[in-house]
């Protein structure tokens, strides 16, 4: 079980929660279970969500494992120049 912190807009789609607990071993499973639990989040996952694991931001590596006790933070997927 990992604790996942959601940013504001995503939290609104999870019933106003800023943190949720999800049983997931990697980012792919995390997204799948979040979409199951909170269907409103699914379109955001499709558009792109970044996942910060202990401060390192991952945008596309859905196979990235979520270590036990790691800080998992969801962030908007941003553009660069």
């Amino acid at each position: 079980m990992v604790e996942v912190t959601l940013w504001g807009a995503l939290g609104q789609l999870a019933g106003g929660k800023s943190k949720v607990e999800v049983e997931a071993k990697d980012i792919r499973e995390l997204f799948r279970k979040l979409a199951e639990q909170y269907p409103g989040i699914e379109p955001w996952i499709e558009k792109g969500i970044a996942v910060a694991i202990d401060g390192t931001i991952y945008r596309d590596t859905w196979s990235k494992e979520l270590p036990k006790g790691a800080e998992i933070f969801l962030l908007p997927r941003l553009a660069g120049g």
Binding site: T5, W7, A52, D54, G55, T56, I57, F73, L75
Partner: peptide, 9 residues
Amino acid sequence: RSSYGPVYG
């Protein structure tokens, strides 16, 4: 803890 959320490495 960064102002945008996660803790820095």
